[in-house]
Amino acid sequence: MVASLSLPRILRIGRGAVGELGDVITGLGLSRPLLVTDAFLTGTGAADRLMAALTDAGLQPRLFAGTVPDPTTDSLGAGLAVLRDHEADSMIGFGGGSPMDTAKALGLLAVQGGQMRDYKAPHANPGPALPVIAVPTTAGSGSEATQFTIITDSATDEKMLCSGPAFLPVAAVVDFELTLSMPPRLTADTGVDALTHAVEAYVSRKANPFSDGLALNAISTIGRHLRRLYADGEDIEAREAMMLAATQAGIAFSNSSVALVHGMSRPIGAHFHVAHGLSNAMLFPAVTAFSVRAAESRYADCARAFGAATDGDGDALAAEKLVAALRTLCQDLEVPTPQTHGIGKDEWFRLAPVMAEQALASGSPANNPVVPTADEIEDLYAQIYA
């Protein structure tokens, strides 16, 4: 099998890396970036500090802080207007997955026009697009290193997966110091998101030796550090480790794929406005239990990397231990069920058939070790509700 691999052209990783952002942009021959961020990072002053640093580097930046959680097609309009008014030659996605996904979408629409629904999977998007420089402030989405963006169709509430080289950042600046203010809930949810990326990349039908090594390393790192970080957000060693693991997991799944957890997660986010990492966490143990029978040895490798099994455990036992370990992890991180999160039972079950069809339509479940039917996906939604 020949693996087709794509990575950002430039990766700057480590403490203080954000201080090199101006040099990265200048080195790419760019001068008029649009800084895409959200109200939170504007409110903390982080966006203004970054704007000042870009100006000091001789660039002509413009700020767009209108990103919304789980960006929608409606939310892109204001960004496009600012982008065109500024005559931007590049995009900086500054924040969690939502600002980075917004920057990617705007970069494509600015050049190609149309609507985001024109670009959703299975449509391939090779480009062209404005170059994106990604600066993550959470350790989870991995979007800084992936050729994917997720945009919700405002008309249908479908969370659309859009993929292709057009969405791959040309550069990523990964500085763990930007994550130091993350609260425990966000730390947990983004950490489980990164773990899901790594496990699904490894068990995916599109896995390859390149993605395998990154995935297993990320799983091992997360297994050693996520609980530590949830307990103590000022653990610098754990912050740095989790940031690197999130980027490694992002590279892994961008060059392999995600699978059923993500396919089922997106409709939960679209219909019930549950944060992406949290909806993944709600699903992760049950979907893994459903899938292990078709890839015991692969899940066993994940269990050993995570620290849930030993080399002396057979594959079947190790795979079972992974499922148990994921359940315990979600309990330790206080992951709610849809019910305890406040989602009404009647609405959950009314929308389950729609969510199942949307999950299948995304294409991600086809990468799962067990390719589910719509009925099986509905059953999994029923299992996790309470």
Rank of each mutant, 00 (worst) to 15 (best):
A57F: 08
P165S: 13
L161G: 12
G97D: 12
G140H: 07
L180R: 15
F94G: 01
V82Y: 03
D85E: 15
P128H: 05
A121I: 01
K159M: 01
Q112N: 13
A110W: 11
A121Q: 11
A57E: 01
A110N: 09
V68P: 00
A65Q: 08
V170E: 12
L106P: 11
Q112G: 07
D70G: 11
S181C: 10
Q112V: 14
G93W: 07
S141F: 07
M100R: 10
G58I: 04
L76W: 07
P61K: 07
P71T: 02
T152D: 12
P61M: 11
S90L: 10
V111K: 13
T146R: 06
D157M: 13
V68W: 08
G114V: 14
G93Q: 09
P126R: 01
T156R: 02
V170C: 05
V111R: 13
I92W: 06
G107P: 13
K159P: 04
K120S: 00
R84F: 06
I151L: 03
D118Q: 11
L106F: 06
A166H: 01
V170S: 02
V170I: 14
G113H: 00
T146D: 01
G96Q: 08
M100L: 15
I151W: 00
K104C: 02
A110L: 13
A65I: 07
T102L: 06
Q147G: 14
L130W: 00
P99Q: 01
L59E: 14
R84M: 05
E177N: 09
G164F: 07
D157T: 11
R62M: 13
G95P: 05
I151V: 15
V132H: 03
P61E: 08
V111T: 15
R117W: 14
G79M: 02
K104A: 03
P126G: 00
F94D: 04
Q112M: 15
A105E: 11
P71E: 09
I150W: 03
H123K: 15
T152H: 07
P165R: 13
T102E: 05
H86P: 03
Q60V: 14
S141A: 09
A65E: 07
G107L: 06
R62K: 13
L130S: 00
I133Q: 02
G93L: 06
A103S: 03
E177Q: 12
S154H: 12
L54W: 05
P131T: 04
P71D: 01
R84Y: 09
E144K: 13
K104T: 00
E177W: 08
L161R: 09
T55Q: 14
V173I: 14
V174P: 02
S181T: 15
I150C: 09
L59W: 14
T72C: 02
V132S: 03
E158C: 09
A124P: 03
D175G: 05
M100G: 11
V82M: 09
T137F: 09
V132E: 06
E177R: 07
A155E: 15
A134N: 10
V132Q: 02
G142A: 03
F64P: 02
S181Q: 12
L106I: 05
R117F: 10
V174E: 14
M100P: 08
K159Y: 04
P99M: 02
F176E: 14
M100K: 00
M160N: 10
L59C: 12
A166W: 09
E158G: 11
G79K: 02
L80S: 00
A129G: 10
S143Y: 12
E158W: 08
L54Y: 02
A81P: 00
P126E: 08
